[in-house]
Simulated assay, not measured.
Amino acid sequence: MNSMYLAVGYNCNHRCYFCPCGKKEGKAKAAPTEQMIEAIETGIQNNGIEYITLSGGEPILHPGFHDILEYCVSKKLCVTILSNGDILHKESNVHKYFDNIDPSYFNITTAIHSDQPELHDRVTGVKGSYCRTVKGLKNLIPLRIPFTVKQVISKWNYKRLPEFVDFVHREYGPFASLTLCGMDFCGMNRDEIAEVAIAYKEIGQYLEKALDIVLSIRQQFGGFPQVTVADLPLCCVDPYYWGFFTKVSRGKLSKYSAPKQSDGEVSSSEEIVNDCDVYFKECGSCCVSDFCPGVWNSAYQYFGENAVRALKPQKIE
């Protein structure tokens, strides 16, 4: 799978507590639309790009976002848009950015940090962001634009994972896919990390209850077209739930492009290694390490070697 990551620009209408974009990136100017499209075309011609992620900051805030997305779809790329969904609470914006673009070629992934408005707004640093984001995703349904609700698991929300799954189903019925993922601590200092970091062994029981609810909803209502668990080790749950886990973050990106910090022109790199893998010594003796999503490198650096446990094959007497 030849994939490309394009940071459309670092301008954002949220100030998320654990945003991986550092202060330097935040000061980078947005690159012109023409340079963005040129970077995509180069990726197609030189790297055989088939999949592309449009990210930021908030990518929809780039003045040329519609043109960039339209170009990607015209090339029949599979596009994932990482958006906070806030700007989409106005139906006019949904039409402005997505009308006349085939929704079968793109999907939107949006993080909702809690089923509780106050906690979501605490994470984003913007009052009222919860209500706008929830409404923004609802506005995608009439246009049949596929979307995924993502929850980044932290100390602040892990105990409410079951309630969060129920909330997503209540709000969006069978239209929303779901991703539950571990946190990348990149860009935070150790004191900030300590505020949100939670050990993988503590997550397990709540994650299992959440996935039980997913299975129940699917059986009763046919909801959740796709559910994945990412950036968490297999050893944090019972093997019964491993089918939900995906190695989406491991491997290499064929191309990574982003605005330069100095002048806003596009800077590109090739064959970038993703930062999620099996880093622990324990993983070397684990019988399922080849299938494990692993963890973010920043999480490995923070938690240290005792954060996971090697799984051994069971002997049959």
Rank of each mutant, 00 (worst) to 15 (best):
H113E: 09
G284F: 04
Y5E: 11
R309P: 00
E118L: 14
C292A: 06
K96M: 06
E50I: 11
Y17Q: 01
A31R: 00
D99A: 13
G85H: 01
H113I: 04
D86Y: 15
S177Y: 03
Q205S: 13
S74H: 03
V152T: 13
L178P: 04
F167Q: 05
V94L: 03
P239G: 09
Y302Q: 05
T80W: 11
L82F: 15
L143I: 11
C235K: 02
Y206T: 11
M183Y: 10
H169T: 06
R15F: 09
L6S: 02
D166W: 12
R15T: 09
D290A: 08
K315Q: 12
P142N: 13
V79K: 00
Q151M: 14
L180A: 09
G173Y: 01
G56K: 05
Q226R: 15
F18K: 05
D115Y: 02
K247Q: 13
C16V: 11
G57P: 01
R250F: 11
V79E: 00
K90D: 12
N274Q: 15
Y17S: 03
Y105R: 04
S249M: 14
C286K: 05
I217S: 11
E118N: 15
E58V: 08
I213D: 03
E270D: 09
T228P: 05
D99L: 11
H113C: 03
V278G: 02
K201F: 11
K75I: 08
V308G: 04
K201T: 07
R218C: 04
V229C: 11
R15C: 00
Y10L: 07
S285H: 09
G128I: 12
T110E: 05
G125L: 06
L82D: 12
L140C: 03
I141V: 14
A7W: 05
T148Q: 00
A28F: 00
V278A: 10
T246P: 00
S92P: 00
F244Y: 07
F164V: 07
K312S: 10
K209M: 11
Y172N: 06
G43P: 08
S285P: 03
L215E: 14
Y158D: 12
I145G: 03
I37R: 05
P225S: 03
Y158V: 12
P103F: 14
V229S: 05
E271A: 14
I141H: 01
V168P: 01
V73A: 05
K312D: 04
L253Q: 14
